[in-house]
Design a binder for these strands. Structure first.
Lengths: 206, 206
DNA sequence: TCTATCATGTAACCAGTTACATGATTTT
DNA sequence: AAAATCATGTAACTGGTTACATGATAGA
């Protein structure tokens, strides 16, 4: 087994990465993450940042560097990455890139139970889905375009391109699924429809 | 905002679906889930089942139907779905199919921080990744083939086909990314390599 | 100057995982 | 009959989210 990480939350990876550039206090980390749009790639909220930084500190991957009070503001604790932290960052990143793990997207769960809805309703929902996906894809593309125009190097936009690739594949799959359900030649639609007391859905409007 | 679900764990969706067929006790639910291979689509373990069933009961979406003791075995509590539970099942499924939510796959996180690794190492890792993906895709395909041969209707294998579609897209993207990094014509590889004190990686072996 | 928003952190709560417990079968 | 595995559940712990608290600045 691959040596369970002491801190498994992916937010910790981002924290290590940012701290490898320069020491910061948690709030500043949050600001930086948002500014760089990393909140699109890594789930986080105010609370989880403090939690993760605490975990990293307990694990010895970061240390309190100074506890300064600027003016009358609450104490801000600045953290710095340690050598162990740098090693963890490299090792963890390498693992994530080199060894894809089995994940559980919500749509997979939904598909595995899809027979609980009648096929007529499902085709409608799938059409809706396709539109949502197209819109999301367009948004991602727009984000890339404006970023590039603003001078952001392409290297820092690969994750967005990856997202687009997945969205496109999802869209294509969704379209094919609609076709298969509405295609009267398919074997599995009729029993499905009958189970729900429906007749097979027509192929209008695809 | 879309009326936060009282129980948000996707395992609960599967539980509702299975209980809509017939009442069962938690352990039996677990067995059924594994037998149908739903553990590939929905993350669960022994403990989380009991938790989720408890949550569903508190939310009124399922009820204890009977508490039978068969022989000397520990008490088995059998649960049945309620009308509210059936409504929740339909509504939740419809939402999941019709409105794709923003998700956070690990590889997206890794890509967003990829500049922390030197490009030479990254290309190697990406090649590794591509092989892993190909293997996973082959496994999924094999699973589909044997299931179909065993008489499982295609309707119950769509989620596996979806997974294959995503894996294929991922593979393709990974290949293109390797090409872009090793392509000496690309603008973003050189500064990246220099930042790590490397020369740009060559395009051998792709 | 009152109100809103920013900046910063802590505490309480809930969800999820791991470990424990125990009687019943089956295998050796 | 001892050991392993199945069947079933509970309890303890850890991770994550939401809500709370509070001084500082900026806008009305």
């Amino acid at each position: 087994m691959p040596a369970q990480r002491k801190v498994s939350n992916l937010l910790a990876l981002a924290v290590l990465s940012y701290l490898s550039q320069q020491p910061m206090h948690p709030y500043e980390l949050g600001r930086s993450l948002r500014e760089h749009g990393d909140d699109r790639s890594i789930k986080f909220n105010h609370g989880s940042l403090y939690m993760v930084v605490g975990q990293l500190a307990r694990a010895g991957l970061v240390t309190e560097q100074e506890t300064s009070r600027g003016g009358q503001r609450p104490e801000r604790t600045v953290y710095a990455i340690t050598d162990a932290g740098r090693a963890e960052l490299r090792d963890w990143l390498a693992e994530l890139v080199g060894q894809p793990r089995h994940e559980f997207p919500a749509f997979v769960a939904a598909l595995s139970l899809i027979s609980a809805l009648p096929p007529g309703q499902v085709t409608g929902l799938l059409r809706q889905r396709r539109e949502h996906l197209a819109r999301q894809r367009a948004e991602s593309q727009a984000l890339i375009d404006t970023s590039l125009a603003a001078g952001v190097p392409g290297l820092f936009l690969v994750e967005e391109e990856y997202r687009i690739a997945l969205l496109a594949a999802d869209e294509a799959f969704t379209g094919q699924l609609i076709a298969r359900i509405t295609d009267p030649g398919t074997d599995w639609t009729s029993p499905w429809a009958q189970f729900h007391g429906e007749s097979a859905p027509s192929e209008e409007g695809d």
